[in-house]
Amino acid sequence: MLLLRSKWWPPIWISVVTFVGLVGALVVEGPVGDIAGAVGLGAPLLVTVWFLRRA
């Protein structure tokens, strides 16, 4: 029930993107891996900045 509340979805998605990005950057060779890492860490930063600016 708790997880069905809409405000849980953004942090869950951010966590999944971060985890997959960081592990992807470690496992995948070349620029694709580097991009995965950048997306994985860029997502939480962008979301943070977006909400802070909105406030």
Binding site: A25, L26, D34, G37, A38, L41, G42, P44, L45
Partner: peptide, 22 residues
């Protein structure tokens, strides 16, 4: 590497540093 953040080039390092500041 998942602690050091030194495996994805300079972009990853800068993002790592920003999250450190966060």
């Amino acid at each position: 590497p998942l602690h050091f953040g030194d495996y994805g080039g300079l972009t990853l390092k800068w993002l790592w540093a920003l999250l450190d500041v966060v």
